[in-house]
Amino acid sequence: MRAAHVHRLILWSLLILFAVYFLTPMYVMVSTSLKDMEQVRNGSLLSLPTSPTTEAWAKAWSGACTGTDCNGLKPFFLNSLLLVIPAVLVSSAIGAINGYVLAKWRFPGSETMFAFLLFGVFMPMQVVLLPMSQVLGWLGIASSLWGLILIHVLAGIPSTTLFFRNYYVGLPDELVKAAMLDGASFWQIFFRIVLPLSTPIVVVTLIWQFTNIWNDFLYGVVFSGADSKPVTVGLNNLANTSSTVKEYNVDMAAALIAALPTLLVYVVAGKYFVRGLTAGAVKG
């Protein structure tokens, strides 16, 4: 019994140590963002703000300079919202339909098609930059928000298809066969039987896609124009804009503003994400 208590004490000590280690950068960012520049210069990195202020947050949102533009992160944040919502919904919807077809409506060549889609999951993003640029140019949507949405939809289809296909493989085939015997069509089976049973994997896919698209920098910096840059590009421009005084508190506040949506998503829906994974989202 005493040995069990010792083991539990060691386990909790290690967990607390790791938690402190991983949360320390977040603490530094939050505390620095609440200081003015005098406190930043005169205090230590880990010191608490003596007179907390949100001036750095206000400046990061609407007054900080990103190059020659001094409107803060607000326009970039709004661009990311306009980008992430349709891209997540469309890529998840297409992945759900693809997964349903590949899992329950097998046809000659379906396994080969799934293998090609899997190749898209592991293919480096840098490989497709030039072909995607050419396609966007042909479509006339290069350097636009619509072009970015299309890029993220296409890039997300392999992952969403993989998630839904592996989840639907675990659903009993008898459900589909019974519905077919009753005269239900392809879409009736999907919307009335399969989709209502898909809540765990839908949550997993939405969170996965939202996080990937919101945090993406490569596609944003390559394919966006002057008026369509996402928040990650805006944050990079803000941090690299040279001035007479480096305002670390503004940089920290800007980084937190850019990270808030993904943090909120995981705080609100994190437990559903874990349940969805354990329900079979990433089974082989």
Score class of each variant (00 low, 15 high):
Tyr21Thr: 13
Trp12Ser: 13
Met125Thr: 11
Gly276Met: 02
Asn71Tyr: 09
Met180Tyr: 01
Ile141Ala: 06
Ser243Pro: 00
Ser110Phe: 01
Leu73Cys: 08
Leu17Gln: 10
His152Lys: 05
Leu118Lys: 06
Arg8Gly: 00
Thr32Leu: 00
Ser92Val: 15
Leu136Arg: 01
Leu129Asn: 06
Tyr168Lys: 01
Leu264Ser: 09
Ile149Arg: 10
Leu139Val: 10
Tyr219Lys: 11
Asn42Arg: 13
Gly225Ala: 12
Thr241Gln: 06
Leu130Ser: 03
Ile193Trp: 00
Ala239Gln: 14
Cys65Asp: 10
Leu197Arg: 14
Val221Trp: 05
Ile151Tyr: 11
Met132Ala: 03
Val128Lys: 00
Ala93Ser: 13
Ser51Gly: 15
Met252Lys: 04
Leu256Ser: 04
Lys271Met: 14
Met252Pro: 02
Met26Val: 13
Leu139Glu: 10
Pro230His: 10
Asp69Glu: 11
Glu111Thr: 13
Gln209Arg: 13
Lys283Asp: 04
Ser91Gly: 01
Thr66Tyr: 02
Leu34Trp: 02
Ser133Ala: 09
Val265Ser: 03
Gly280Asp: 07
Met125Gly: 11
Gly67Ala: 03
Val30Cys: 12
Ile149Asp: 10
Pro158Ser: 00
Ala4His: 14
Met123Gln: 08
Leu195Gly: 10
Val221Ile: 15
Thr32Asn: 00
Asn236Trp: 10
Asp251Ala: 09
Val135Glu: 13
Pro230Gln: 05
Met37Val: 07
Gln39Cys: 05
Met1Thr: 04
Arg165Phe: 10
Gln188Trp: 02
Ser80Asn: 07
Leu17Asp: 08
Ala259Cys: 04
Gly67Thr: 09
Pro200Glu: 02
Gln209Trp: 00
Asn166Ser: 08
Asp182Val: 09
Leu129Gln: 03
Val202Asn: 00
Pro196Phe: 08
Gln39His: 07
Leu130Ala: 12
Thr241Leu: 08
Thr160Val: 01
Val274Phe: 03
Pro86Ser: 06
Val221Tyr: 03
Ser91Tyr: 12
Ala103Asn: 08
Leu23Ser: 07
Ser133Val: 03
Val265Tyr: 02
Leu117Ser: 07
Tyr266Leu: 13
Phe210Ile: 06
Leu154Asp: 08
Cys65His: 10
Pro108Trp: 00
Leu118Thr: 11
Thr50His: 11
Phe76Val: 03
Ile201Met: 08
Leu162Asn: 14
Val135Lys: 09
